[in-house]
Every structure is written in structure tokens, then in C-alpha cells.
């Protein structure tokens, strides 16, 4: 059994102009110790998926269908119990996840004692270990968040999220605010720690480079739907959905050159109030067929597309 099973997750936002479907039938599994990447452009629903798992949907948004199971136990409606203990979270901006008025030690110890029945000394020992694990000096327990650089703060956040030993870690753009050299370090750290502890990780990002470097499998989202999912190597090198193909082709690479233009997908992702019938990508797709405009393709063989699968 997978650690996390998400089936047909559907999230809606009732507005006065009608109901917006922010997530539409999203299904995926994450195994223990596996890193699943969720990629997509802004508004595709990747962060929304993380928020729905954590029970952190902003009202009036709510889960209207589907299920989330952690080791066979249903999570929907009980997010508060699961948050922290079973679900850890790392956000883009480390400053928003840390209390600026408390030392990082106090915050770590508080979290540890909240989840485990430990005395002050034992909790402090654990906090020191947690800092050492993320590559920080354990003696900096008494430092305040502002005394750290951005990259080090994100290490503290990782330590904090992992200190409760969650079964699933959701990292939402954890390195977007960091420089590339620091980004690589944090990603390597995240990867190593989760392998070691057998934590299931959902890494939400818009950056294909981050995905390629870190994840085992990738899910590609578009307009609130999961349109392709598979092994990272396969998604990056042999994408099967026309959108993923376009996305990969339009990503600049170090192997490019000045004299040729980048591949570009025409148009832009539809807004939630104007998602076309059938396949959401059909107005921009170069392979569009009549069926694409009327029927929504089901997820088969790791992709949601009516095109005949091509084997190479």
C-alpha cells in the first residue's frame, strides 16, 4: 500500500459569478521514501493540491469530492489531526514559517514537545540533533531567525518540519527564493533526509530543473487537472502529453544557442472560469482532434490525452 493515496480530489471555490473548480479529479500515489514532483504553471493547481492535503484551503474553497488516504486512513475533514504530526510542510518563504520573536531553539523544542512526550533536556537534545542533521551548528539553538541567511533559514524550516517525523512532507516551492548555489544544497539536503527517514515527499515547483535534479516521479498539472504522471526521466526525456512536450521544449537549456528561437506554445493557460470543454489544453494543442473538444480524456498509461500513444 502506498503511503499517500489521493483519488479524484476535487476542490471548488463558490463565487458570486459561479463555482470555480480549482482542482478537478486529481489522483496520485506517493510511496514511503519517494519524492513526487508536482509541476505546472501558476494557477495550474499544484499549490492548491498541497493546501488541500494539509487542510489549508483558503475559504470559501473546499474539497467537494474524492479522497485522501494516509496509510489507509482517511484524511479529509480531519486535517488538523494530521497536520504537523503526519504532514509536514516547507513553504517558499522561510520567514513566514518562523516566529521572528522566538529563538529557533525555542521553536524546535516547542514543536518536539508538542508531538512527543519528552522532558526539556531530551527535547533539547533532539533539537540539537535536528540542527546538526540539516548542517547547522547545534550551538546556534539560541539564535533568532533574523540572524540567519535565507538559505540557512530554509534549513531551519526543514529541521522544524521534519522534527515531528511526519510521514509525508509537502514542500511548496522551497527554493524559489534562493540563489542557485544555495538551491542545490537545500534540495540535496531535503533528498538525503527523506531517503534516510523514509519520508514521502511532495515537491511542488514550477522549475523543471529542480524536478530533474530531485524527484523520482513527476505529475504535470494544467488548469486544475493532472494531465501526465510518470518517472522523472521519462517525463523529461520522453514526455507523452503534448502540453508536457511543449513545456519541456520551451524550457531554455545550457545547450541552446542565440541564433535559434525557443519553442513556444501559443496562447496561455485558461482561467478557472473559462476552462474549455473536453481536454483543457485543446485550444493550444497542435494535435487537436474533434474528440478533444468534446470529451475529457481519462488518465490512461500515465497521461490524459486522446492521441494514440507513440512508442519510441
Amino acid at each position: 500500500m502506498s503511503a499517500l493515496e489521493v483519488r479524484d480530489l476535487t476542490v471548488e471555490f463558490p463565487t458570486r459569478r459561479g463555482v470555480l473548480r480549482a482542482l478537478d479529479g486529481v489522483s496520485f500515489d506517493v510511496e514511503q521514501g519517494e519524492i513526487l514532483g508536482l509541476v505546472g504553471e501558476s494557477g495550474a493547481g499544484k499549490s492548491m493540491t498541497g493546501a488541500a492535503l494539509m487542510g489549508l484551503l483558503e475559504p470559501p474553497g473546499r474539497i467537494v469530492g474524492g479522497s485522501i488516504h494516509l496509510h489507509g486512513e482517511s484524511v479529509v475533514g480531519r486535517a488538523q489531526e494530521f497536520r504537523g504530526r503526519h504532514f509536514g510542510m516547507v513553504f517558499q518563504d522561510p520567514l513566514t514559517s518562523l516566529n521572528p520573536l522566538k529563538t529557533i531553539g525555542a521553536q524546535l523544542i516547542e514543536t518536539i514537545q508538542w508531538h512527543f512526550n519528552l522532558g526539556a533536556q531530551q527535547a533539547e537534545l533532539r533539537a540539537r540533533n535536528a540542527l546538526a542533521e540539516v548542517g547547522l551548528d547545534p550551538d546556534r539553538l539560541n539564535a533568532y531567525p533574523h540572524e540567519f541567511s535565507g538559505g540557512m533559514r530554509q534549513r531551519v524550516v526543514v529541521a522544524l518540519a521534519l522534527s515531528a517525523e511526519p510521514a509525508v512532507l509537502i514542500a511548496d516551492e522551497p527554493t524559489t527564493a534562493l540563489d542557485v548555489s544555495i538551491q542545490a544544497q537545500i534540495l540535496d539536503l531535503l533528498k538525503a533526509l527523506c531517503r534516510e527517514r523514509n519520508t514521502a515527499v511532495i515537491l511542488i515547483t514550477h522549475d523543471m530543473g529542480v524536478v530533474a535534479q530531485t524527484t523520482d516521479r513527476v505529475g504535470v498539472m494544467y488548469a486544475g487537472r493532472l494531465i501526465e504522471i510518470g518517472q522523472t526521466d521519462q517525463i523529461i526525456n520522453r514526455p507523452a502529453h503534448p502540453y508536457t512536450q511543449g513545456l519541456m521544449a520551451s524550457t531554455p537549456t545550457l545547450a541552446g544557442d542565440v541564433s535559434t528561437d525557443l519553442y513556444q506554445i501559443a496562447g496561455s493557460m485558461p482561467r478557472l472560469d473559462a476552462i474549455p470543454a473536453g481536454c483543457a489544453f485543446n485550444p493550444r494543442c497542435t494535435h487537436v482532434m474533434p474528440k478533444c473538444r468534446s470529451e475529457r480524456p481519462p488518465m490512461t498509461g500515465g497521461r490524459a490525452c486522446w492521441l494514440e500513444a507513440t512508442h519510441d
Binding site: Q213, N237, P239, A249, T251, T253
Partner: peptide, 11 residues
Amino acid sequence: PIVSPKASRSG
């Protein structure tokens, strides 16, 4: 972060 060089061929 380098997206595998094979990706450029699918360009």
C-alpha cells in the same frame, strides 16, 4: 539545475 540534455532534442 540542468534539465537533461536530451530534452533539447525534443525542442
